[in-house]
Every structure is written in structure tokens, then in C-alpha cells.
């Protein structure tokens, strides 16, 4: 079950720098570990994280197998207009988690 904790300010003044923080539940299995049966445990990682603001991509990250489980990310962007901020994580085995937050900009 994908679970995410997302923190986006609900209100901001136009031109403000806002901080976005997000934590997602994911095993980030590196694909290098050996299981108790002696076999390699299949890789299962998040590959990309993107943030779009009213449809425009404002932040993107590529994840690697060296990143720990349940990765946390924080970044900033400029508040331009009221609307939707969409955070999306995609990865191995068709993994996809999408979180949408509304922001009011005055």
C-alpha cells in the first residue's frame, strides 16, 4: 500500500518561495541484497519523482538503488498562481503514487 505524507502550504503570497516536503512509504529494495534462500532479492525502487504546478513541471528527481527505504524529499519553488500541486512517484513493478494538493496564492 503506497502511503505518502505531503506538506504543501495551503496559502502563500505571490512570489513567495515555498517549501514542499514529502515522505513516501516504499521498500527501495536495491537489487543487490541476497535473501535467506541465497537468491538475489529483485530490485524494487522508485525511479522518478516529479512535481508539477498547474501542469508545469517545477521539480524532478531520479532515484538510485542506494537511496534508503521510505525516502523523504524536500525542495522549494516559487508561488505563482492558485491551483494544483501534483507530486508523483513512479518506479519498478509499475509502482505509481500520486498526491494532489491545492494552494491559494494572493
Amino acid at each position: 500500500m503506497a502511503r505518502a505524507l505531503v506538506n504543501v502550504p495551503a496559502n502563500a503570497r505571490r512570489g513567495d518561495i515555498i517549501e514542499i516536503k514529502a515522505l513516501i512509504s516504499h521498500p527501495m529494495e536495491s537489487g543487490f541484497r541476497v535473501g535467506t534462500n541465497g537468491k538475489i532479492i529483485q530490485r524494487d525502487i522508485i525511479q522518478t519523482f516529479t512535481c508539477t504546478y498547474n501542469g508545469e513541471e517545477v521539480f524532478k528527481a531520479k532515484y538510485s538503488p542506494a537511496i534508503a527505504a521510505n525516502p523523504f524529499i524536500s525542495f522549494s519553488t516559487r508561488a505563482t498562481d492558485s491551483g494544483e500541486i501534483v507530486l508523483a512517484w513512479r518506479g519498478d513493478n509499475g509502482f505509481e503514487a500520486v498526491e494532489t494538493k491545492q494552494i491559494t496564492v494572493e
Binding site: R3, L5, N7, K21, L23, S25, N70, S74
Partner: peptide, 17 residues
């Protein structure tokens, strides 16, 4: 800091669940 900030404390995912 990771413990004290609810948005970065990974255990909060379990609390949510």
C-alpha cells in the same frame, strides 16, 4: 530534526496507517 519534524519522521507513515 528528523524525529521532531512530523513531515520528515518516517514513523509518521505508520501513525497514518
Amino acid at each position: 530534526d528528523m524525529q521532531n519534524d512530523d513531515t520528515s519522521n518516517p514513523a509518521m507513515l505508520w501513525v497514518l496507517e
